[in-house]
Design a protein around this nucleic acid. Structure first.
Lengths: 345, 345
DNA sequence: CCTGGCACTCGGTAGAATCGAGTGCTAACA
DNA sequence: TGTTAGCACTCGATTCTACCGAGTGCCAGG
């Protein structure tokens, strides 16, 4: 409830706000004026702190859970804290080393890499982590292959330039013979090589009915893949931390709700939207448009492959999180992941 | 605490035990003698029920959370219930239809299918569901392909007979040219076609250094895939139900522990071990060797592809679950999944 | 503008009283 | 011998009360 246009705080008020946020993050208990006056060397008495706190409350930075309790940061308070006191994220040395080591020794398929990246980020931050895969729209076809699994059942496989493999099975009423299948595969290979996966050109009909049926099936199958599936894959690591953090949330069910959101990949929308920004961006509580994220903060950073923004890494935790550590971790992981993908990709 | 060798219960005691289990499953509260005498038409008074209950308690089928409270089933009690009163699982019509419809319209890649199967099973049972993919040891190579992503970076792709695709990226110090790569691919394709994925024969050296380096890399890469990764993929659906069920568990953290177990795929071991059985098998509380599953029950059924046991589907929930419904759902899904994979596979 | 002092608020905790569902036991009964 | 009614007893859960104390707002003096 900001009664006043949010303005810059004078130095002492800022320090007090900072103290409230930091203490509250650490102890999870409302912070009183004495505590601030004692632990911080502000050189003023608790009464002065109290006065400033009333102002901070009027301006909407802090609030009281009830009369005669200490202060708790509001979303606006966290926002001020993030904007002013976390310019550079701080990452513990052990964590820095863990991240560096991980990316130095990672040699896996893209999916595995992203999955394990999410687990790494979760481990470092102690929160649930998300990794959105590179947008495959920028990926190009490297190879198309048709493999007959059983008579009448063909597996279509496309290898993309980013190392991803897209595939689907196709059931055909009239069973093309092996020669027809490989001819079709060769035709696709020739026509699609280098094409963007999300804009595959039509293949000219060959005149052979069985072949054309197969070709139509393949074409339709990939078109469906592009269309229906949100192609950015979402990898979530450390979901258990969500359940463990339930104390930080209002109700116990809210944790379950969040898990559900993640499982249904609802959050992706919000992730992609925020992708506009370049550096680390933080979304606090009510700043999130999704109702269930009211008590959560999301720390995001896009990663760049070959200079182009490709995907996003992020952390989902309670608003009461260690922003400096989280921001540092997200920044480090997004950079390293981008670098690794640029090299290997 | 069974003081007596577990014996068959007389009809009335069995009915009382059944009543206790069913009522407790429904209400989650200790069941008293009056409740049993009233709701069930046993034709006896609560005093008689009380007497029988003492016997049931001595024999270890039920227990009291504290003196002067109703009875709660023990693991042994659930066991008796499952063995005697759930011979045929019961599935609601709406659920039966949902399962049938799902498998009638499923046309996706293997991974997607298994993943969505786990979500289906979770939705039907209202618990966390697990699907273990077909063991790829029985899968055979259908196609091997090497795709140059960048100079010096090759993606090796193997298509298996079960529709799975295994792949990894390979970085080569000396960059083979396109002709060498395709020659190597052709050689692998020729030598490995039809071979079991877990037992790939060595390729004879060609004499060309660059080609042999590439071949060794590919060989080693697949060998590593076979060796290091637990090849049965585990798909977990409905993790949010675990968090929602936290009331059923002793501590709130235990739900987080379970999530962690699932994420690290620890449960797989126990799943594969139980795969011996043919039909639906139920593992209740302390029957599970894993400490964290002390308050959980696992309902499992293998599914068969072409007559051979291939993988497992299962449900993880609190010991206080609706066994009839769960068993019915697991049985139905395992059968249908097996049938679908036999057709398409 | 800061500070010490002071009355006041109110959540949290501890203890006492009470309630009631449920038990075990015993005696009577078929 | 098995069943039932009656009864004293147990003990978790709930309610009420009193009380403590951290914290606040405000005021008067430096």
């Amino acid at each position: 409830m900001a009664f006043v246009e949010p303005m810059d705080l004078d130095e002492r008020k800022a320090a007090i706000l900072r103290a409230v946020v930091e203490e509250y993050i650490e102890t999870a208990e409302p912070v009183g004026s004495q505590r601030v006056a004692r632990t911080r060397k502000l050189g003023v008495s608790s009464a002065t702190v109290r006065n400033d706190m009333t102002v901070l409350e009027h301006e909407g930075y802090v609030t009281q859970p009830h009369t005669s309790a200490g202060r708790i940061p509001t979303d606006l308070g966290y926002r001020y804290f993030v904007d002013h006191f976390t310019k550079e994220g701080a990452l513990r040395v052990a964590h820095q080393r863990a991240v560096a080591e991980f990316f130095a020794t990672a040699h896996r398929a893209l999916e595995d890499l992203l999955h394990e990246t999410s687990q790494l980020l979760s481990r470092v931050t102690d929160h649930t982590a998300m990794v959105v895969g590179p947008q495959p729209e920028v990926a190009h076809i490297r190879s198309v292959q048709l493999v007959t699994l059983h008579p009448g059942v063909v597996l279509a496989v496309a290898v993309l330039s980013n190392g991803a493999v897209e595939k689907f099975t196709l059931e055909l009423p009239d069973q093309p013979d092996e020669a027809q299948v490989s001819a079709t595969a060769a035709a696709f290979e020739a026509h699609w090589s280098g094409c963007a996966f999300n804009d595959l050109p039509q293949l000219a009909p060959s005149g052979d009915d069985a072949v054309d049926a197969l070709a139509r099936g393949v074409q339709a199958g990939f078109a469906q893949l592009v269309g229906e599936r949100p192609m950015e894959m979402l990898y979530v690591g450390g979901t258990s931390r969500l359940a463990a953090e339930h104390e930080s949330f209002a109700t116990a069910e809210s944790a379950a709700h969040l898990l559900e959101l993640l499982e249904h990949q609802v959050v992706v929308v919000s992730l992609v939207r925020n992708l506009l920004d370049q550096g680390v961006s933080v979304s606090i509580g009510s700043e999130n448009e999704i109702e269930e994220l009211r008590d959560c903060a999301i720390v995001l950073a896009p990663y760049q492959v070959e200079g182009e923004p490709a995907g996003t890494v992020g952390v989902l935790g309670p608003t009461r999180m260690d922003y400096r550590l989280t921001i540092g971790a997200v920044a480090a992981v997004s950079q390293q992941l981008g670098r690794l993908l640029t090299r290997v990709d």
